[in-house]
Amino acid sequence: MIQWTTNFLASTFLISTPIILVGLGIVFSERAGVINIGAEGLMLIGALMGVVGSWATGSVILGTLIAMLSGVFFSLIFAYLTVSLRANQVVAGLALNIFAGGFTVVMNRLIFGVAGNAAKIDVFNTVPIPVLKEIPIVGASLFSQPLPVYIALIAAPLLQFYLMRSNPGLKIRAVGENPKAADSLGISVPAVRYMTLLYAGAMAGFAGAFVSMGQVSFFSEGMIAGKGYMALAAVVFGNYNPVGVLMAGLVFGSAESLQYRLQASGSPIPYQFLLMLPYIITVLALCVYHKKTNRPAYSGQPYHKG
């Protein structure tokens, strides 16, 4: 039983991390009023570019940086379309996802060949934390994880504080809730939206890199498989708060982790219903939040000055 719990928790943290990381990014752009369904495609690009970077440089850290930069670059295109050209955010995000689906496959085959990537790359290894790792259950699950897992867990409360207490955080919230009022106080709505989107792009790249180099050690076509959409769900279920994203990510991750265990143990409950759970929870949460939602008033609406 102890072994079961330890394994369950360890895999929960591992599965949750990319969802939390990307969720912590898009929660900011969502708060600034931009619907970011392109995160799925950005993660896919990040997953590939991380592997490419790690393979080329021999360093998982540099690989991750390259993944993040790629995320920023493609986010820039998305921002140009949605903020500068005031294009429909949903469609632009979808376009990015379709593009990324093709782009990553083409790049992967060109670099690693049709057979797939057999190249050995540097990946995220577990970094057990001294002393703490000795604690029963938690030590082997929570405190013996790769670096990004710790980052995701620690970043959430810090980003919560940043969003609620810092000057840029205040601007971001104001821009999503009432861009006209922000404009009347001399805040540049486009600048704020660009910044949050670029940051979200970096986080999506990071999350993607963790999928390909933290959970496994290779890139496979379409490997993100809806994690970007699930992060969107985590943002909604977490009511547009970074800490909420963390909680939602852990809940979703545990559902998936549990599912693997049920599948292995031949439980009578079909594991697919556990996989559905995150999405059903999110829809129910939307019904319950109703009026109390933190969804910005101007979510999805391009801003026209004057």
Binding site: L170, A174, K180, L185, I187, P296, A297
Partner: peptide, 28 residues
């Protein structure tokens, strides 16, 4: 003071007051 107020309803009074001030430090 515009006829249609330029306030952000979801924020607190003090957040509305300091919003966009040049002298704001990074952390408020």
């Amino acid at each position: 003071v515009h006829q249609h107020f330029m306030l952000v309803p979801a924020l607190t009074v003090i957040e509305n007051v300091v919003l966009g001030l040049k002298e704001n430090k990074h952390f408020l």
